[in-house]
């Protein structure tokens, strides 16, 4: 996989545009803004679902609709000074996908993603929060290009394919410890570990 091609940094204008659309949905139930966001995000959401369950095309279409409706419903809760639109939409897609596959797994508890992922945003009283987060995002995006193939592979399996660390280990036929240290190393390259020893 080449890293440079698949993650173009969105420029500020584009992010600003998406924020405007979300605000228009929240304030004026603007269907045109919704339609623009649909064009941008529906393919991402579908690819995200297919990554976990390749071949389940109708399921993926269903998820697209569900997440797009969530965007419409929750646009008023989106805090533009805290998260970028794409990060926010990623979390909505993640939650919808978890709940989707959770329903099929009878061993899972009855706790939904709404129960656990709400209210977990970084709300420190920091005037420069938004700027700081943009910086970090830029740093992460750049650093992703410096990961080795092996590191990119495990991280992608976790986030895109929705696999637990032990599922990744099984699939790659690696000891769990190897997978874990690979992920830890990758995350520390991205600067997102909390100063733990590796």
């Amino acid at each position: 996989m080449t890293h440079n091609t698949h993650r173009s940094l969105k420029d500020d204008a584009e992010i600003h545009q998406e924020k405007t659309w979300l605000a228009a949905i929240a304030e004026k139930q603007d269907e045109t803004a919704f339609s623009e966001l649909f064009d941008r995000y529906a393919p991402k959401i579908k690819a995200f679902c297919l990554a976990q369950s390749p071949g389940s095309v109708s399921l993926a279409d269903e998820l697209v609709q569900e997440v797009m409706v969530k965007i419409w419903q929750k646009a008023g809760l989106y805090k533009s000074d805290i998260a970028s639109p794409s990060t926010w939409i990623f979390t909505l897609a993640r939650n919808a996908r978890v709940d989707f596959f959770r329903k099929q797994n009878r061993h899972q508890s009855d706790i939904t993603t709404d129960d656990i992922y709400e209210e977990l945003i970084d709300e420190s009283q920091d005037l420069f929060l938004s700027a700081r987060q943009n910086q970090q995002k830029l740093h992460i995006t750049r650093a992703l290009d410096t990961l080795s193939f092996d590191q990119t592979e495990v991280i992608s399996k976790v986030y895109m394919e929705g696999k637990s660390h032990s599922q990744v280990a099984d699939e790659l036929q690696l000891p769990l410890g190897t997978v874990k240290s690979r992920i830890r190393l990758a995350l520390s390259k991205l600067g997102v570990t909390l100063g733990e020893s590796l």
Binding site: K44, F48, A93
Partner: peptide, 23 residues
């Protein structure tokens, strides 16, 4: 909380990769 936000940003980077998927 801060670390979670960063780790979600990592997920977002993968989520936003261009894909050939058709709607």
């Amino acid at each position: 909380k801060h670390q979670l936000n960063q780790l979600e940003t990592v997920g977002e980077s993968f989520f936003m990769q261009p894909s050939q998927v058709l709607i």
